[in-house]
Write a protein that binds this DNA or RNA. Sequence first.
DNA 1: AGCAGCCTACCGTCCGGTAGGTAGGGAGTG
DNA 2: CACTCCCTACCTACCGGACGGTAGGCTGCT
Lengths: 199, 199
Amino acid sequence: MPHMKDTITDAAVDLFYQKGYFATSVSEIARQCGIQKASLYYHYPSKENILFQIQKVTMDELTDYLRSNLDGLTDVETRMRAAVHSHVRFHLNRQKETFIANSELRGLTPDHYREIVSRRDAYEQIFQNIIREGCEAGVFAPVDVKILSYAILTLCNAGAIWFKPKGRMPVDAIAAIYEAFVLQGLKTGRPGLAPMPAG
Amino acid sequence: MPHMKDTITDAAVDLFYQKGYFATSVSEIARQCGIQKASLYYHYPSKENILFQIQKVTMDELTDYLRSNLDGLTDVETRMRAAVHSHVRFHLNRQKETFIANSELRGLTPDHYREIVSRRDAYEQIFQNIIREGCEAGVFAPVDVKILSYAILTLCNAGAIWFKPKGRMPVDAIAAIYEAFVLQGLKTGRPGLAPMPAG
DNA sequence: AGCAGCCTACCGTCCGGTAGGTAGGGAGTG
DNA sequence: CACTCCCTACCTACCGGACGGTAGGCTGCT
């Protein structure tokens, strides 16, 4: 039996995911919870704060999940595989929240915006360190680390766009596809065809 | 010397890109053009129609650009390279419009939504055909064509998120990075490590 | 004259948020 | 037990303002 605050958060996640933050009204969220709009303000100080809490919790849990999945792994290729797998899994299992965290940054106040972006930067740093390490060890082809990290993270978000939890493919199968593609893509190609390093 | 209709479209592109469709008001677009809100309705029947026209033109030009870049190419790997290059180039050169076309579908009426989605489907079909052909020819590792096509298209959109036209990297250099990564990723990996085909 | 292209002034509606009140339950006191 | 007191969690009613869009008039060019 959940408390009303959680009910509100869940309703907001559903609506923000389905219609977008600006297209969702506070009364709509309240109606979904079976309460009046004013009652909602007993639990949250503002509409923006609902959005912020969703994003903050999501980013924290995403980062915790990645760290726990990397824990104890030392081999750089294994770490990269685990990172991709973790990222994809989380995005498929928490489809709505991650979609909101990726696309509704513009609804945040400047302060909250900075807070979320700094969390995202920290998350990306983990990926960039793995890629850099792999390049320096010669396991991966020499690449522009930042560009590739954005590319990989964006690529792994693709699944969350079309994924249906009751569809034909289980989460791990999809994660395996992305994992294989990314790892293959990072490998050293035929000489002369490798991407140029950053200038 | 552009006509007012084009000025309005350009202003809308800027604002929709910067603040999002729902967060942009009609008066704001008008102000940016130096006219009154009511005057805008002489050129466009509704706010939604501005969005729709932007998306329609963008999708049409994106598709035309791809077709023209593939014209005359027969080798499947060459076609794939050209397709990725075309996609990335267009997204970097038309950053704002493509961002809007990717993220503001929810602002469209149901009819217009269907029209845009069907254009996008047709565009994706071109990529899927190339991938399928490459897999059947044994040039690419066997993959789930749909999943991989979404992954590749999403991946190539990544550049448009952070790209600054006056930044250090020219468009073609970025396109080359994505091109190399995608082509390497599609190649047959070591036996036993290839991604599994669709179930 | 006629029309393109713009204007001012206004419409009803919905927005996020607030003021102020109240039902109900638990705790403290005699 | 009876009674007060307070707090949680909700309510109704309302606020000012912004929204998308419209009616109708003015101006200047052809």
